[in-house]
Amino acid sequence: MSTPYPVRLAGEELWLLPEKALYWPAQQALLIADVHFGKAAAYRSLGQPVPQGTTGHNIAVLDALLASLLCRQLIFLGDFLHGPGSHATATLKALVDWRTRHAELPMTLIRGNHDKRAGDPPASLNIRVVPEPLLLGPFALQHEPQPHPDRHVLAGHVHPVYRLNGRGRQSLRLACFRLGEDVSLLPAFGAFTGGYPVQRNENCRMFVIGDNEIWPL
């Protein structure tokens, strides 16, 4: 695991992880947004040339995080599976093998828009599926980044990225965390997910991910 970057949010210490995940030490909870398992398989089933090995990569990163952190719960903030085509045999076998390695770890999925299309994970994965919001401490854990009346929202869905401009036409498009006053965004965890550019202002804190480190802006 790379070096975490501790921040304070809603009175809690949270660790921003360069692996595009968030760890909440007080709850011993690892939060993952938008892994989109099986997206590449779904695209290949439509005859589109896309990268292979993304499921294996995502699982390897998850395994490394779970080996490095003291976790008593793993929470997915929506979009666990990408779509109906994600139920490919090889994808599901890899997920079942991964779940078997962590059989004692409670896992929860907060249902996102892609989960509604893909269907809930197979029962063999033993993942509790709940609607948003999941209220935990001062936070409303959600997929959609919609404000909650009395909790700070931790959400995914947007796949936030930030563009750093250099000299001339040089620029970098980096995954980021955007911590706002009422709603904070996690980057997409999945290796094949794309990103949506977000802006910073005086009401938010931005942290980009580059060279396996977290960089505050």
Rank of each mutant, 00 (worst) to 15 (best):
G166Q: 08
V198C: 06
L136E: 14
H148K: 03
D97A: 08
A33W: 12
G85M: 01
D97K: 10
L74T: 07
R167Y: 14
S45M: 11
Y196S: 13
Y5S: 01
P25D: 03
H152M: 02
V161E: 12
A123F: 07
P147F: 03
A41W: 03
K93E: 14
S68K: 13
G195I: 12
D34N: 06
H159M: 07
T54A: 01
I110G: 00
D150E: 11
T100F: 06
L217W: 15
R200A: 13
V208E: 09
G210Y: 15
G190E: 04
A123E: 12
F192P: 03
I209A: 05
L217N: 12
N126K: 11
N58G: 05
L17Q: 09
F37W: 09
Q48K: 14
E132F: 01
V129H: 00
P187K: 10
E19A: 04
R101N: 09
V183Q: 06
E213W: 14
A41Q: 06
L109A: 04
V153Y: 13
L154M: 02
A118W: 11
Q199G: 00
V50C: 03
P121F: 00
E19F: 11
P4S: 05
A140N: 08
R200M: 13
C71A: 07
L109D: 05
G180I: 11
I214A: 08
I110P: 02
V35D: 00
I32E: 07
P187N: 10
A90Q: 07
V7A: 08
D120V: 02
V35E: 01
E19M: 04
